[in-house]
Amino acid sequence: MRSFTSQQKQLLLLLSPATLFLGIFFLGPLLIMAVYSFLEPGLYGGVEWNFYHWNYGRVLGWADGFYEEFDIVYLQILLRSAGLALVTVLVTLAFCYPVAFWISRMQSRWKSFCIFLIALPFFSSMIIRLYAWILILRDSGFANQILMSLGIISEPLDLMYSGTAVIIGMVYIFIPFMFLPVYSSVENLDPKLIKASQDLGATPFTTFRRVIFPMTLPGVVSGCILVFIPALGNFVVPAMLGGAKVVMIGNLVEQQFLAARNWPFGATLSMVMIVFMLLVVSVYLIRAMKNPQHS
Protein backbone atom coordinates (compact mmCIF):
# COMPACT_ATOMS: atom_id res chain seq x y z
CA MET A 1 0.00 0.00 0.00
CA ARG A 2 1.36 3.36 -0.91
CA SER A 3 1.76 5.96 1.74
CA PHE A 4 0.72 9.54 1.39
CA THR A 5 3.18 12.38 1.47
CA SER A 6 2.50 14.97 4.13
CA GLN A 7 1.22 17.36 1.45
CA GLN A 8 -1.26 14.81 0.20
CA LYS A 9 -2.36 14.16 3.76
CA GLN A 10 -2.87 17.85 4.29
CA LEU A 11 -4.89 18.11 1.11
CA LEU A 12 -7.04 15.17 2.13
CA LEU A 13 -7.58 16.75 5.51
CA LEU A 14 -8.56 20.04 3.92
CA LEU A 15 -10.89 18.47 1.39
CA SER A 16 -12.55 15.97 3.65
CA PRO A 17 -15.10 18.32 5.29
CA ALA A 18 -16.34 19.47 1.89
CA THR A 19 -16.39 15.93 0.54
CA LEU A 20 -18.16 14.67 3.61
CA PHE A 21 -20.68 17.47 3.46
CA LEU A 22 -21.44 16.84 -0.21
CA GLY A 23 -21.49 13.11 0.34
CA ILE A 24 -23.91 13.21 3.25
CA PHE A 25 -26.19 16.05 2.26
CA PHE A 26 -26.20 15.77 -1.51
CA LEU A 27 -25.24 12.33 -2.76
CA GLY A 28 -26.81 10.53 0.20
CA PRO A 29 -30.37 11.73 -0.37
CA LEU A 30 -29.91 11.33 -4.11
CA LEU A 31 -28.91 7.71 -3.60
CA ILE A 32 -31.92 7.12 -1.33
CA MET A 33 -34.16 8.57 -4.05
CA ALA A 34 -32.55 6.39 -6.70
CA VAL A 35 -33.07 3.26 -4.60
CA TYR A 36 -36.65 4.20 -3.64
CA SER A 37 -37.58 4.69 -7.27
CA PHE A 38 -37.20 0.93 -7.77
CA LEU A 39 -39.23 -0.12 -4.70
CA GLU A 40 -42.89 -0.90 -4.16
CA PRO A 41 -44.95 1.82 -2.49
CA GLY A 42 -46.20 1.08 1.02
CA LEU A 43 -49.94 1.28 1.53
CA TYR A 44 -49.67 4.16 3.99
CA GLY A 45 -46.56 5.83 2.60
CA GLY A 46 -43.03 4.62 2.96
CA VAL A 47 -41.77 1.71 0.90
CA GLU A 48 -41.94 -2.05 0.74
CA TRP A 49 -38.49 -3.50 0.13
CA ASN A 50 -39.47 -5.36 -3.04
CA PHE A 51 -38.14 -4.59 -6.50
CA TYR A 52 -40.89 -2.81 -8.43
CA HIS A 53 -40.56 -1.89 -12.09
CA TRP A 54 -43.88 -0.09 -12.54
CA ASN A 55 -42.67 3.29 -11.38
CA TYR A 56 -40.65 4.16 -14.47
CA GLY A 57 -43.17 2.54 -16.78
CA ARG A 58 -45.84 4.69 -15.23
CA VAL A 59 -43.94 7.87 -16.06
CA LEU A 60 -44.06 6.82 -19.71
CA GLY A 61 -47.76 6.15 -19.44
CA TRP A 62 -48.07 2.41 -18.84
CA ALA A 63 -50.70 1.40 -16.37
CA ASP A 64 -49.84 -0.84 -13.47
CA GLY A 65 -52.89 -2.98 -14.04
CA PHE A 66 -54.75 -1.64 -11.02
CA TYR A 67 -57.48 0.84 -11.89
CA GLU A 68 -55.27 2.48 -14.51
CA GLU A 69 -55.23 3.00 -18.25
CA PHE A 70 -52.37 3.86 -20.59
CA ASP A 71 -51.99 7.59 -20.42
CA ILE A 72 -48.97 9.79 -21.09
CA VAL A 73 -50.21 12.39 -18.64
CA TYR A 74 -46.91 12.47 -16.73
CA LEU A 75 -44.88 13.16 -19.87
CA GLN A 76 -47.31 15.93 -20.73
CA ILE A 77 -46.72 17.48 -17.33
CA LEU A 78 -42.96 17.22 -17.72
CA LEU A 79 -43.11 18.85 -21.15
CA ARG A 80 -45.44 21.56 -19.93
CA SER A 81 -43.07 22.34 -17.06
CA ALA A 82 -40.16 22.39 -19.49
CA GLY A 83 -42.14 24.72 -21.76
CA LEU A 84 -42.85 27.14 -18.94
CA ALA A 85 -39.20 26.99 -17.86
CA LEU A 86 -38.12 27.71 -21.43
CA VAL A 87 -40.44 30.71 -21.75
CA THR A 88 -39.10 31.97 -18.42
CA VAL A 89 -35.55 31.59 -19.71
CA LEU A 90 -36.29 33.46 -22.94
CA VAL A 91 -38.15 36.34 -21.30
CA THR A 92 -35.56 36.81 -18.54
CA LEU A 93 -32.81 36.72 -21.14
CA ALA A 94 -34.58 39.24 -23.37
CA PHE A 95 -34.86 41.53 -20.37
CA CYS A 96 -31.46 41.00 -18.75
CA TYR A 97 -29.22 41.09 -21.80
CA PRO A 98 -29.83 44.69 -22.84
CA VAL A 99 -30.14 45.85 -19.25
CA ALA A 100 -26.75 44.32 -18.46
CA PHE A 101 -25.17 46.44 -21.21
CA TRP A 102 -27.00 49.50 -20.03
CA ILE A 103 -25.87 49.06 -16.43
CA SER A 104 -22.31 48.14 -17.36
CA ARG A 105 -21.95 51.52 -19.02
CA MET A 106 -23.07 53.46 -15.96
CA GLN A 107 -20.81 55.22 -13.53
CA SER A 108 -19.60 52.86 -10.89
CA ARG A 109 -21.76 54.09 -8.02
CA TRP A 110 -24.94 53.84 -10.12
CA LYS A 111 -23.77 50.46 -11.26
CA SER A 112 -23.49 49.16 -7.71
CA PHE A 113 -26.86 50.65 -6.89
CA CYS A 114 -28.59 48.99 -9.83
CA ILE A 115 -27.01 45.62 -9.10
CA PHE A 116 -28.09 45.99 -5.51
CA LEU A 117 -31.65 46.70 -6.68
CA ILE A 118 -31.68 43.61 -8.86
CA ALA A 119 -30.30 41.42 -6.09
CA LEU A 120 -32.59 43.00 -3.49
CA PRO A 121 -35.47 40.51 -3.86
CA PHE A 122 -33.09 37.79 -2.63
CA PHE A 123 -33.33 39.37 0.79
CA SER A 124 -37.03 38.73 1.31
CA SER A 125 -39.21 35.66 1.18
CA MET A 126 -40.43 34.56 -2.21
CA ILE A 127 -43.92 33.93 -0.82
CA ILE A 128 -44.22 37.48 0.45
CA ARG A 129 -43.08 38.85 -2.89
CA LEU A 130 -45.64 36.71 -4.70
CA TYR A 131 -48.38 37.95 -2.39
CA ALA A 132 -47.39 41.43 -3.47
CA TRP A 133 -47.96 40.37 -7.06
CA ILE A 134 -51.42 39.10 -6.15
CA LEU A 135 -52.21 42.59 -4.83
CA ILE A 136 -50.97 44.05 -8.10
CA LEU A 137 -52.61 41.63 -10.52
CA ARG A 138 -56.03 40.87 -9.05
CA ASP A 139 -59.15 42.49 -10.52
CA SER A 140 -59.18 45.22 -7.88
CA GLY A 141 -55.36 45.38 -7.87
CA PHE A 142 -52.99 48.23 -8.61
CA ALA A 143 -52.36 47.29 -12.24
CA ASN A 144 -56.06 47.40 -13.13
CA GLN A 145 -56.69 50.49 -11.02
CA ILE A 146 -53.93 52.38 -12.79
CA LEU A 147 -55.01 51.25 -16.27
CA MET A 148 -58.63 52.14 -15.51
CA SER A 149 -57.85 55.52 -14.01
CA LEU A 150 -55.78 56.31 -17.10
CA GLY A 151 -58.80 55.41 -19.18
CA ILE A 152 -56.91 52.72 -21.10
CA ILE A 153 -59.43 50.06 -20.12
CA SER A 154 -62.97 50.27 -18.80
CA GLU A 155 -63.31 46.74 -17.42
CA PRO A 156 -60.61 45.14 -15.26
CA LEU A 157 -58.28 42.86 -17.20
CA ASP A 158 -58.31 39.22 -16.22
CA LEU A 159 -54.67 39.20 -15.15
CA MET A 160 -54.79 37.17 -11.97
CA TYR A 161 -54.90 33.37 -12.31
CA SER A 162 -53.78 33.53 -15.94
CA GLY A 163 -50.82 32.31 -17.96
CA THR A 164 -49.63 35.91 -18.15
CA ALA A 165 -49.58 36.17 -14.37
CA VAL A 166 -47.56 32.96 -14.14
CA ILE A 167 -44.97 34.21 -16.61
CA ILE A 168 -44.77 37.59 -14.88
CA GLY A 169 -44.20 35.85 -11.56
CA MET A 170 -41.66 33.37 -12.92
CA VAL A 171 -39.71 36.07 -14.71
CA TYR A 172 -39.77 38.22 -11.62
CA ILE A 173 -38.49 35.42 -9.40
CA PHE A 174 -35.72 34.31 -11.75
CA ILE A 175 -34.41 37.60 -13.12
CA PRO A 176 -31.51 37.80 -10.66
CA PHE A 177 -30.36 34.30 -11.63
CA MET A 178 -30.16 35.39 -15.26
CA PHE A 179 -28.90 38.88 -14.68
CA LEU A 180 -25.85 38.21 -12.54
CA PRO A 181 -24.01 35.79 -14.86
CA VAL A 182 -25.00 37.75 -17.97
CA TYR A 183 -23.89 40.98 -16.35
CA SER A 184 -20.55 39.56 -15.30
CA SER A 185 -19.81 38.40 -18.85
CA VAL A 186 -20.87 41.76 -20.26
CA GLU A 187 -18.81 43.60 -17.68
CA ASN A 188 -15.77 41.48 -18.58
CA LEU A 189 -16.17 42.18 -22.28
CA ASP A 190 -13.20 44.31 -23.35
CA PRO A 191 -14.59 47.43 -25.09
CA LYS A 192 -11.44 47.40 -27.23
CA LEU A 193 -12.72 44.27 -28.94
CA ILE A 194 -15.86 46.09 -30.01
CA LYS A 195 -13.75 48.99 -31.25
CA ALA A 196 -11.46 46.57 -33.08
CA SER A 197 -14.42 44.99 -34.82
CA GLN A 198 -15.84 48.35 -35.92
CA ASP A 199 -12.41 49.46 -36.96
CA LEU A 200 -12.10 46.43 -39.23
CA GLY A 201 -15.28 47.40 -41.02
CA ALA A 202 -17.99 45.51 -39.15
CA THR A 203 -21.38 47.21 -38.82
CA PRO A 204 -22.84 47.37 -35.29
CA PHE A 205 -25.00 44.33 -36.04
CA THR A 206 -22.09 42.31 -37.39
CA THR A 207 -20.05 43.33 -34.37
CA PHE A 208 -22.81 42.05 -32.14
CA ARG A 209 -23.13 38.79 -34.03
CA ARG A 210 -19.45 38.03 -34.43
CA VAL A 211 -17.91 39.49 -31.28
CA ILE A 212 -20.29 40.65 -28.57
CA PHE A 213 -22.64 37.70 -28.62
CA PRO A 214 -20.01 34.94 -28.79
CA MET A 215 -17.96 36.67 -26.11
CA THR A 216 -20.93 36.92 -23.73
CA LEU A 217 -22.31 33.51 -24.63
CA PRO A 218 -20.78 31.72 -21.61
CA GLY A 219 -22.61 34.11 -19.29
CA VAL A 220 -25.81 33.72 -21.27
CA VAL A 221 -25.58 29.94 -21.12
CA SER A 222 -24.87 29.94 -17.37
CA GLY A 223 -27.82 32.25 -16.87
CA CYS A 224 -30.08 30.03 -18.96
CA ILE A 225 -29.08 26.93 -17.01
CA LEU A 226 -29.39 28.72 -13.68
CA VAL A 227 -32.91 29.81 -14.58
CA PHE A 228 -34.07 26.71 -16.42
CA ILE A 229 -33.29 24.17 -13.72
CA PRO A 230 -35.10 25.78 -10.78
CA ALA A 231 -37.86 27.03 -13.09
CA LEU A 232 -38.50 23.46 -14.18
CA GLY A 233 -39.20 22.38 -10.61
CA ASN A 234 -41.02 25.54 -9.54
CA PHE A 235 -44.69 25.10 -8.74
CA VAL A 236 -45.25 27.88 -6.24
CA VAL A 237 -45.71 30.53 -8.91
CA PRO A 238 -48.17 28.52 -11.04
CA ALA A 239 -50.05 27.70 -7.84
CA MET A 240 -50.19 31.22 -6.38
CA LEU A 241 -50.53 33.37 -9.49
CA GLY A 242 -51.92 30.78 -11.91
CA GLY A 243 -54.47 29.35 -9.50
CA ALA A 244 -52.96 25.87 -9.75
CA LYS A 245 -55.10 25.16 -12.78
CA VAL A 246 -52.25 23.33 -14.40
CA VAL A 247 -50.03 20.82 -12.69
CA MET A 248 -46.27 21.26 -12.80
CA ILE A 249 -43.78 18.47 -12.33
CA GLY A 250 -42.96 19.95 -8.93
CA ASN A 251 -46.62 19.73 -7.80
CA LEU A 252 -46.72 16.20 -8.99
CA VAL A 253 -43.74 15.17 -6.87
CA GLU A 254 -45.24 16.92 -3.87
CA GLN A 255 -48.59 15.26 -4.50
CA GLN A 256 -46.97 11.82 -4.63
CA PHE A 257 -45.27 12.25 -1.29
CA LEU A 258 -48.00 14.04 0.61
CA ALA A 259 -51.38 13.25 -0.94
CA ALA A 260 -50.99 9.99 -2.81
CA ARG A 261 -48.52 8.59 -0.27
CA ASN A 262 -46.59 7.04 -3.12
CA TRP A 263 -42.98 7.72 -2.21
CA PRO A 264 -41.40 5.49 -4.85
CA PHE A 265 -43.32 7.17 -7.66
CA GLY A 266 -42.40 10.58 -6.27
CA ALA A 267 -38.78 9.47 -6.19
CA THR A 268 -39.10 8.20 -9.76
CA LEU A 269 -40.48 11.51 -10.99
CA SER A 270 -37.62 13.29 -9.25
CA MET A 271 -35.09 11.00 -10.87
CA VAL A 272 -36.66 11.59 -14.30
CA MET A 273 -36.47 15.32 -13.68
CA ILE A 274 -32.83 15.09 -12.62
CA VAL A 275 -31.95 13.04 -15.70
CA PHE A 276 -33.81 15.53 -17.90
CA MET A 277 -31.82 18.42 -16.41
CA LEU A 278 -28.55 16.55 -16.75
CA LEU A 279 -29.38 15.95 -20.41
CA VAL A 280 -30.00 19.64 -20.99
CA VAL A 281 -26.77 20.63 -19.27
CA SER A 282 -24.67 17.95 -20.93
CA VAL A 283 -25.93 18.84 -24.41
CA TYR A 284 -24.46 22.25 -23.80
CA LEU A 285 -21.25 20.91 -22.28
CA ILE A 286 -20.66 18.50 -25.16
CA ARG A 287 -21.26 21.25 -27.68
CA ALA A 288 -18.96 23.56 -25.78
CA MET A 289 -16.21 20.93 -25.73
CA LYS A 290 -16.53 20.10 -29.42
CA ASN A 291 -16.65 23.69 -30.55
CA PRO A 292 -15.03 25.91 -27.97
CA GLN A 293 -15.21 29.10 -30.03
CA HIS A 294 -18.99 29.34 -30.62
CA SER A 295 -18.12 31.05 -33.91
Partner: peptide, 19 residues
Protein backbone atom coordinates in the same frame (compact mmCIF):
# COMPACT_ATOMS: atom_id res chain seq x y z
CA UNK B 1 -59.09 4.53 0.80
CA UNK B 2 -56.26 2.00 0.94
CA UNK B 3 -55.18 1.08 -2.57
CA UNK B 4 -57.95 3.29 -3.93
CA UNK B 5 -55.72 6.29 -3.17
CA UNK B 6 -53.86 5.51 -6.36
CA UNK B 7 -57.02 5.85 -8.42
CA UNK B 8 -57.79 9.19 -6.83
CA UNK B 9 -54.23 10.30 -7.53
CA UNK B 10 -54.54 9.40 -11.20
CA UNK B 11 -57.93 11.09 -11.56
CA UNK B 12 -56.66 14.18 -9.80
CA UNK B 13 -53.52 14.36 -11.93
CA UNK B 14 -55.51 13.88 -15.10
CA UNK B 15 -57.99 16.54 -14.04
CA UNK B 16 -55.26 19.01 -13.15
CA UNK B 17 -53.43 18.37 -16.42
CA UNK B 18 -56.44 18.94 -18.63
CA UNK B 19 -56.59 22.39 -20.05
Amino acid sequence: LGKGTKLYDRIWTKFRTAS
